[in-house]
Simulated assay, not measured.
Amino acid sequence: MIFLDAAATTPVRREVLEAMWPYLSGEFGNPSSHHSLGEAAANALAGARAAVAGVLGCRPGEITFTSGGTEADNLAVKGIALSRRAKDPSLDRVLLSSIEHPAVEESALYLQRVHGFTIDVVPVDHTGLVTPEAFRAALQPGTAVASIMYANNEVGTVQPVAELAAIAAESGVPFHTDAVQAAGWLPVRVQDLGVDALSLSGHKLGAPKGSGVLFAKSRLRLEPLVHGGGQERGRRSGTENVAGAVALATALTLANGEQADTVGRVVELRDGFIRRVLDRVPGAMLTGHPEQRLPSIASFCFPGTSGESVLLELERLGVLCSSGSACAAGSDAPSPVLTALGIPAEVAQTAVRFSFNSAITAAELEEAATAVESAVLAVRGLSRS
Protein backbone atom coordinates (compact mmCIF):
# COMPACT_ATOMS: atom_id res chain seq x y z
CA MET A 1 0.00 0.00 0.00
CA ILE A 2 1.08 3.58 -0.73
CA PHE A 3 -0.06 5.78 2.16
CA LEU A 4 -1.06 9.26 0.95
CA ASP A 5 -3.21 10.34 3.89
CA ALA A 6 -0.58 11.91 6.15
CA ALA A 7 -2.77 14.98 6.75
CA ALA A 8 -5.10 12.63 8.64
CA THR A 9 -2.36 11.00 10.69
CA THR A 10 1.21 9.74 10.49
CA PRO A 11 2.93 6.58 11.73
CA VAL A 12 4.66 6.90 15.08
CA ARG A 13 8.40 7.32 14.59
CA ARG A 14 10.73 4.82 16.22
CA GLU A 15 12.71 7.60 17.91
CA VAL A 16 9.47 8.85 19.43
CA LEU A 17 8.51 5.40 20.71
CA GLU A 18 11.92 4.99 22.29
CA ALA A 19 11.74 8.42 23.94
CA MET A 20 8.29 7.88 25.44
CA TRP A 21 8.66 4.23 26.43
CA PRO A 22 10.23 4.82 29.88
CA TYR A 23 7.18 6.87 30.92
CA LEU A 24 4.86 4.04 29.89
CA SER A 25 6.83 1.51 31.93
CA GLY A 26 9.29 2.04 34.79
CA GLU A 27 9.06 5.83 35.08
CA PHE A 28 5.29 5.82 35.54
CA GLY A 29 5.04 8.44 38.28
CA ASN A 30 2.54 11.25 38.59
CA PRO A 31 4.40 14.56 38.03
CA SER A 32 2.47 16.11 40.92
CA SER A 33 3.77 13.53 43.42
CA HIS A 34 6.58 14.58 45.75
CA HIS A 35 8.73 11.46 45.65
CA SER A 36 11.40 10.12 43.34
CA LEU A 37 9.04 8.61 40.75
CA GLY A 38 6.95 11.77 40.67
CA GLU A 39 10.02 13.97 40.40
CA ALA A 40 11.32 11.92 37.47
CA ALA A 41 7.99 12.40 35.69
CA ALA A 42 7.98 16.13 36.52
CA ASN A 43 11.50 16.48 35.14
CA ALA A 44 10.50 14.70 31.92
CA LEU A 45 7.48 16.96 31.56
CA ALA A 46 9.61 20.04 32.13
CA GLY A 47 12.11 18.82 29.53
CA ALA A 48 9.35 18.26 26.99
CA ARG A 49 7.92 21.71 27.69
CA ALA A 50 11.34 23.31 27.22
CA ALA A 51 11.91 21.41 23.97
CA VAL A 52 8.60 22.54 22.48
CA ALA A 53 9.28 26.10 23.63
CA GLY A 54 12.68 25.94 21.97
CA VAL A 55 11.16 25.08 18.61
CA LEU A 56 8.44 27.72 18.91
CA GLY A 57 10.78 30.37 20.29
CA CYS A 58 8.78 31.10 23.43
CA ARG A 59 9.03 30.61 27.19
CA PRO A 60 8.31 27.14 28.61
CA GLY A 61 5.59 28.65 30.81
CA GLU A 62 3.69 29.62 27.65
CA ILE A 63 3.25 25.96 26.64
CA THR A 64 0.14 24.03 27.68
CA PHE A 65 -0.02 20.32 26.87
CA THR A 66 -3.43 19.12 25.68
CA SER A 67 -5.03 15.95 24.33
CA GLY A 68 -4.57 17.13 20.74
CA GLY A 69 -5.11 19.92 18.26
CA THR A 70 -8.87 19.95 18.76
CA GLU A 71 -8.59 20.64 22.48
CA ALA A 72 -5.88 23.23 21.87
CA ASP A 73 -8.15 25.05 19.37
CA ASN A 74 -11.07 24.91 21.81
CA LEU A 75 -8.97 26.24 24.66
CA ALA A 76 -7.65 29.08 22.52
CA VAL A 77 -10.93 30.25 21.00
CA LYS A 78 -13.21 29.71 23.99
CA GLY A 79 -10.62 30.47 26.61
CA ILE A 80 -9.50 33.80 25.14
CA ALA A 81 -13.00 34.96 24.20
CA LEU A 82 -14.60 34.15 27.57
CA SER A 83 -11.75 35.60 29.58
CA ARG A 84 -11.71 38.86 27.63
CA ARG A 85 -15.47 39.30 27.77
CA ALA A 86 -15.48 38.69 31.52
CA LYS A 87 -13.19 41.69 31.83
CA ASP A 88 -14.96 43.82 29.18
CA PRO A 89 -18.57 42.86 28.26
CA SER A 90 -18.31 44.80 24.97
CA LEU A 91 -15.85 42.19 23.64
CA ASP A 92 -18.48 39.82 22.29
CA ARG A 93 -17.36 38.99 18.75
CA VAL A 94 -15.24 36.16 17.28
CA LEU A 95 -13.53 36.43 13.89
CA LEU A 96 -12.61 33.39 11.79
CA SER A 97 -12.26 32.45 8.14
CA SER A 98 -14.80 30.55 6.07
CA ILE A 99 -12.47 27.52 5.84
CA GLU A 100 -11.48 26.92 9.46
CA HIS A 101 -11.13 23.43 10.92
CA PRO A 102 -14.30 22.27 12.71
CA ALA A 103 -12.46 22.53 16.04
CA VAL A 104 -12.32 26.31 15.57
CA GLU A 105 -15.66 26.71 13.82
CA GLU A 106 -17.60 24.66 16.38
CA SER A 107 -15.90 26.51 19.23
CA ALA A 108 -17.14 29.78 17.76
CA LEU A 109 -20.63 28.36 17.26
CA TYR A 110 -20.66 27.26 20.91
CA LEU A 111 -19.76 30.78 21.99
CA GLN A 112 -22.59 32.10 19.82
CA ARG A 113 -25.16 29.55 20.96
CA VAL A 114 -24.43 29.46 24.68
CA HIS A 115 -22.82 32.82 25.42
CA GLY A 116 -24.36 35.13 22.84
CA PHE A 117 -21.21 35.99 20.89
CA THR A 118 -21.42 37.25 17.30
CA ILE A 119 -19.36 35.42 14.67
CA ASP A 120 -17.72 37.42 11.88
CA VAL A 121 -16.49 35.36 8.94
CA VAL A 122 -13.68 36.40 6.58
CA PRO A 123 -14.33 35.11 3.06
CA VAL A 124 -11.57 33.46 1.05
CA ASP A 125 -10.79 33.83 -2.62
CA HIS A 126 -11.07 30.98 -5.14
CA THR A 127 -7.67 29.63 -4.03
CA GLY A 128 -8.63 29.55 -0.35
CA LEU A 129 -6.58 32.61 0.55
CA VAL A 130 -7.54 35.12 3.25
CA THR A 131 -6.25 38.43 1.93
CA PRO A 132 -5.10 41.12 4.35
CA GLU A 133 -7.70 43.45 2.84
CA ALA A 134 -10.56 41.01 3.49
CA PHE A 135 -9.31 40.37 7.03
CA ARG A 136 -9.07 44.07 7.83
CA ALA A 137 -12.58 44.66 6.48
CA ALA A 138 -14.02 41.86 8.63
CA LEU A 139 -12.29 42.95 11.84
CA GLN A 140 -14.98 44.70 13.89
CA PRO A 141 -14.88 46.71 17.12
CA GLY A 142 -15.62 44.38 20.01
CA THR A 143 -13.70 41.41 18.58
CA ALA A 144 -12.50 39.25 21.47
CA VAL A 145 -10.34 36.88 19.41
CA ALA A 146 -9.42 36.22 15.77
CA SER A 147 -8.53 32.71 14.60
CA ILE A 148 -7.17 31.97 11.11
CA MET A 149 -5.56 28.61 10.38
CA TYR A 150 -1.95 28.69 9.15
CA ALA A 151 -2.44 26.07 6.43
CA ASN A 152 -5.66 24.41 5.34
CA ASN A 153 -6.00 20.71 6.00
CA GLU A 154 -8.04 19.98 2.85
CA VAL A 155 -6.58 22.09 0.05
CA GLY A 156 -3.22 23.04 1.58
CA THR A 157 -3.46 26.81 1.07
CA VAL A 158 -1.03 28.68 3.34
CA GLN A 159 -2.28 31.93 4.85
CA PRO A 160 -0.21 35.12 5.31
CA VAL A 161 -0.43 34.67 9.06
CA ALA A 162 2.23 37.24 9.98
CA GLU A 163 0.42 39.96 8.02
CA LEU A 164 -2.96 39.03 9.47
CA ALA A 165 -1.62 38.89 13.02
CA ALA A 166 -0.06 42.33 12.59
CA ILE A 167 -3.43 43.76 11.48
CA ALA A 168 -5.12 42.20 14.51
CA ALA A 169 -2.44 43.62 16.78
CA GLU A 170 -3.12 47.12 15.47
CA SER A 171 -6.63 46.78 16.94
CA GLY A 172 -5.49 45.06 20.13
CA VAL A 173 -7.17 41.77 19.13
CA PRO A 174 -5.47 38.50 20.19
CA PHE A 175 -4.69 36.34 17.15
CA HIS A 176 -4.75 32.52 17.26
CA THR A 177 -3.65 30.21 14.48
CA ASP A 178 -4.27 26.49 14.07
CA ALA A 179 -0.85 25.29 12.91
CA VAL A 180 -1.63 21.58 13.11
CA GLN A 181 -0.90 20.96 9.41
CA ALA A 182 1.87 23.56 9.15
CA ALA A 183 4.20 22.17 11.84
CA GLY A 184 7.14 20.34 10.32
CA TRP A 185 6.66 22.04 6.94
CA LEU A 186 6.52 25.77 7.65
CA PRO A 187 8.27 28.12 10.11
CA VAL A 188 6.50 28.07 13.49
CA ARG A 189 8.52 30.52 15.59
CA VAL A 190 5.77 32.50 17.23
CA GLN A 191 7.65 35.80 17.44
CA ASP A 192 8.23 35.75 13.69
CA LEU A 193 4.57 34.94 13.07
CA GLY A 194 3.41 37.56 15.56
CA VAL A 195 0.66 35.33 16.93
CA ASP A 196 -0.70 35.34 20.47
CA ALA A 197 -1.71 31.68 20.45
CA LEU A 198 -0.89 28.65 18.29
CA SER A 199 -2.15 25.05 18.28
CA LEU A 200 -0.24 21.86 17.41
CA SER A 201 -1.06 18.14 17.27
CA GLY A 202 1.42 15.33 17.85
CA HIS A 203 -0.03 12.67 15.57
CA LYS A 204 0.53 14.80 12.44
CA LEU A 205 4.27 14.76 13.24
CA GLY A 206 5.02 11.14 14.10
CA ALA A 207 3.82 11.11 17.72
CA PRO A 208 0.87 9.03 18.99
CA LYS A 209 -2.68 10.29 18.82
CA GLY A 210 -3.85 12.10 21.94
CA SER A 211 -1.03 14.62 22.33
CA GLY A 212 -1.26 18.32 21.56
CA VAL A 213 0.02 21.75 22.53
CA LEU A 214 -1.32 25.25 22.87
CA PHE A 215 1.14 28.12 22.91
CA ALA A 216 -0.43 31.18 24.52
CA LYS A 217 1.45 34.32 25.51
CA SER A 218 1.94 34.57 29.24
CA ARG A 219 0.07 37.87 29.41
CA LEU A 220 -2.94 36.30 27.69
CA ARG A 221 -5.58 35.18 30.17
CA LEU A 222 -7.50 31.99 29.35
CA GLU A 223 -10.70 30.69 30.87
CA PRO A 224 -9.94 26.97 31.31
CA LEU A 225 -12.17 24.33 29.77
CA VAL A 226 -11.19 21.69 32.32
CA HIS A 227 -11.24 22.47 36.02
CA GLY A 228 -9.75 20.46 38.85
CA GLY A 229 -6.25 20.19 40.23
CA GLY A 230 -4.84 23.27 38.57
CA GLN A 231 -2.20 21.51 36.44
CA GLU A 232 -0.60 23.34 33.50
CA ARG A 233 -0.60 26.57 35.56
CA GLY A 234 -4.35 26.35 35.90
CA ARG A 235 -4.98 26.41 32.15
CA ARG A 236 -5.72 22.69 31.83
CA SER A 237 -6.39 20.60 34.91
CA GLY A 238 -5.83 16.86 35.01
CA THR A 239 -2.82 14.62 35.51
CA GLU A 240 -0.52 15.30 32.60
CA ASN A 241 0.16 12.72 29.89
CA VAL A 242 3.92 12.65 30.44
CA ALA A 243 4.64 10.04 27.75
CA GLY A 244 2.50 11.97 25.27
CA ALA A 245 4.27 15.24 26.05
CA VAL A 246 7.69 13.61 25.63
CA ALA A 247 6.52 12.02 22.37
CA LEU A 248 5.23 15.29 20.94
CA ALA A 249 8.35 17.19 21.94
CA THR A 250 10.56 14.54 20.35
CA ALA A 251 8.55 14.43 17.12
CA LEU A 252 8.40 18.22 16.83
CA THR A 253 12.12 18.57 17.45
CA LEU A 254 12.94 15.93 14.84
CA ALA A 255 10.59 17.41 12.24
CA ASN A 256 11.94 20.90 12.84
CA GLY A 257 15.52 19.72 12.48
CA GLU A 258 14.77 17.88 9.22
CA GLN A 259 12.69 20.63 7.66
CA ALA A 260 15.48 22.31 5.72
CA ASP A 261 16.45 19.02 4.06
CA THR A 262 12.96 17.71 3.31
CA VAL A 263 10.76 20.61 2.24
CA GLY A 264 12.44 21.36 -1.11
CA ARG A 265 12.52 17.69 -2.07
CA VAL A 266 8.85 17.13 -1.18
CA VAL A 267 7.76 20.30 -2.99
CA GLU A 268 9.46 19.04 -6.16
CA LEU A 269 7.81 15.63 -5.81
CA ARG A 270 4.42 17.20 -5.07
CA ASP A 271 4.60 19.46 -8.11
CA GLY A 272 5.56 16.54 -10.34
CA PHE A 273 2.62 14.53 -9.02
CA ILE A 274 0.25 17.44 -9.65
CA ARG A 275 1.50 17.80 -13.24
CA ARG A 276 1.09 14.10 -13.95
CA VAL A 277 -2.47 13.98 -12.59
CA LEU A 278 -3.53 17.11 -14.48
CA ASP A 279 -1.91 15.84 -17.70
CA ARG A 280 -3.30 12.31 -17.51
CA VAL A 281 -6.80 12.77 -16.10
CA PRO A 282 -9.19 14.69 -18.35
CA GLY A 283 -11.02 17.45 -16.50
CA ALA A 284 -9.01 17.11 -13.29
CA MET A 285 -9.02 20.33 -11.22
CA LEU A 286 -6.37 21.28 -8.68
CA THR A 287 -7.93 22.89 -5.60
CA GLY A 288 -6.25 25.40 -3.33
CA HIS A 289 -3.55 27.95 -4.11
CA PRO A 290 -1.32 26.81 -7.01
CA GLU A 291 1.88 28.00 -5.31
CA GLN A 292 1.16 29.21 -1.76
CA ARG A 293 0.38 25.73 -0.49
CA LEU A 294 1.76 23.12 1.88
CA PRO A 295 4.53 20.94 0.45
CA SER A 296 2.58 17.92 1.66
CA ILE A 297 -0.88 18.33 0.08
CA ALA A 298 -2.17 17.92 -3.48
CA SER A 299 -5.95 18.04 -3.74
CA PHE A 300 -8.16 17.63 -6.79
CA CYS A 301 -11.74 17.47 -7.97
CA PHE A 302 -12.59 14.95 -10.68
CA PRO A 303 -15.88 16.10 -12.25
CA GLY A 304 -18.04 13.29 -13.54
CA THR A 305 -17.08 10.94 -10.71
CA SER A 306 -17.93 10.30 -7.09
CA GLY A 307 -15.03 11.09 -4.79
CA GLU A 308 -15.87 8.15 -2.55
CA SER A 309 -15.97 5.79 -5.54
CA VAL A 310 -12.54 7.04 -6.67
CA LEU A 311 -11.21 6.42 -3.16
CA LEU A 312 -12.49 2.85 -3.15
CA GLU A 313 -10.95 2.19 -6.54
CA LEU A 314 -7.64 3.73 -5.47
CA GLU A 315 -7.57 1.51 -2.39
CA ARG A 316 -8.18 -1.51 -4.62
CA LEU A 317 -5.16 -0.35 -6.63
CA GLY A 318 -3.03 0.03 -3.48
CA VAL A 319 -3.25 3.77 -2.78
CA LEU A 320 -4.70 5.09 0.49
CA CYS A 321 -5.92 8.70 0.52
CA SER A 322 -9.04 10.64 1.52
CA SER A 323 -11.85 12.80 0.18
CA GLY A 324 -10.93 15.69 2.48
CA SER A 325 -10.82 16.24 6.22
CA ALA A 326 -10.69 13.04 8.27
CA CYS A 327 -12.83 14.88 10.82
CA ALA A 328 -15.72 14.84 8.31
CA ALA A 329 -15.33 11.20 7.26
CA GLY A 330 -18.60 9.46 6.58
CA SER A 331 -20.44 12.62 5.53
CA ASP A 332 -21.86 12.70 2.02
CA ALA A 333 -22.29 16.50 2.12
CA PRO A 334 -19.95 18.57 -0.06
CA SER A 335 -16.95 19.99 1.77
CA PRO A 336 -17.68 23.45 3.22
CA VAL A 337 -14.06 24.33 2.47
CA LEU A 338 -14.50 23.64 -1.24
CA THR A 339 -17.84 25.39 -1.50
CA ALA A 340 -16.30 28.41 0.28
CA LEU A 341 -13.80 28.50 -2.62
CA GLY A 342 -16.76 28.84 -5.01
CA ILE A 343 -16.65 25.24 -6.22
CA PRO A 344 -20.17 23.98 -7.05
CA ALA A 345 -21.50 21.38 -4.60
CA GLU A 346 -21.75 18.65 -7.24
CA VAL A 347 -18.09 19.17 -8.16
CA ALA A 348 -16.97 19.42 -4.52
CA GLN A 349 -18.36 15.92 -3.98
CA THR A 350 -15.75 14.58 -6.41
CA ALA A 351 -12.81 15.76 -4.26
CA VAL A 352 -9.81 13.60 -3.41
CA ARG A 353 -6.91 14.73 -1.21
CA PHE A 354 -3.41 13.26 -1.40
CA SER A 355 -1.11 14.13 1.50
CA PHE A 356 2.47 13.02 2.03
CA ASN A 357 4.94 12.61 4.84
CA SER A 358 8.61 13.43 4.46
CA ALA A 359 9.52 9.86 3.51
CA ILE A 360 7.52 9.90 0.25
CA THR A 361 9.45 8.81 -2.85
CA ALA A 362 9.28 9.66 -6.54
CA ALA A 363 8.53 6.02 -7.37
CA GLU A 364 5.55 5.96 -5.02
CA LEU A 365 4.09 9.13 -6.50
CA GLU A 366 4.60 7.88 -10.06
CA GLU A 367 2.74 4.70 -9.19
CA ALA A 368 0.06 6.74 -7.44
CA ALA A 369 -0.44 9.01 -10.45
CA THR A 370 -0.94 5.97 -12.67
CA ALA A 371 -3.45 4.59 -10.18
CA VAL A 372 -5.34 7.92 -10.12
CA GLU A 373 -5.69 7.84 -13.90
CA SER A 374 -6.96 4.26 -13.83
CA ALA A 375 -9.31 4.87 -10.91
CA VAL A 376 -10.96 7.98 -12.34
CA LEU A 377 -11.43 6.40 -15.75
CA ALA A 378 -12.83 3.25 -14.16
CA VAL A 379 -15.34 5.26 -12.15
CA ARG A 380 -16.33 7.15 -15.29
CA GLY A 381 -16.95 3.82 -16.98
CA LEU A 382 -13.93 3.99 -19.25
CA SER A 383 -10.65 2.11 -19.47
CA ARG A 384 -7.10 3.27 -20.01
CA SER A 385 -6.01 3.22 -23.62
Rank of each mutant, 00 (worst) to 15 (best):
R85C: 06
H34M: 04
H126P: 05
R265I: 04
S211M: 00
F175K: 01
L382Q: 15
G318K: 13
E223G: 00
L193R: 09
A40K: 15
S211C: 15
G304A: 01
K217T: 01
R236N: 14
G283I: 04
N153P: 02
G38Y: 07
L45H: 04
T262Y: 00
S147E: 00
S171Q: 15
T9R: 15
G26T: 09
G202Y: 12
E62A: 05
A53K: 00
K209C: 13
T339H: 03
D192A: 15
V379M: 14
T253K: 02
G230T: 10
R265Q: 11
A345Q: 13
S385K: 08
A179I: 05
V372D: 03
A108W: 11
Q292F: 00
E163S: 15
E367M: 07
S32R: 14
S25G: 03
G184S: 09
E315W: 02
V188N: 08
P102R: 13
A151G: 15
V213F: 08
L17N: 09
I343N: 11
E367W: 06
A86R: 14
W21Y: 10
A351R: 06
L317A: 06
I119M: 14
H289E: 04
R85Y: 08
R276K: 07
G304W: 06
A46T: 15
K217C: 04
G283S: 07
L269H: 03
P224E: 11
I343T: 07
S306D: 10
A146F: 03
R236P: 05
R236D: 09
G342S: 07
L198I: 03
V104K: 06
G283L: 02
P123W: 05
P22T: 06
F175H: 03
R189S: 06
M285Y: 04
P60S: 01
G194T: 13
Y110C: 00
Q191M: 06
S32N: 12
E268C: 01
Q231E: 15
T177Q: 01
T239C: 03
I80C: 02
L311Y: 05
A51Y: 09
V213A: 08
A255T: 02
T131S: 15
L320M: 13
A362G: 13
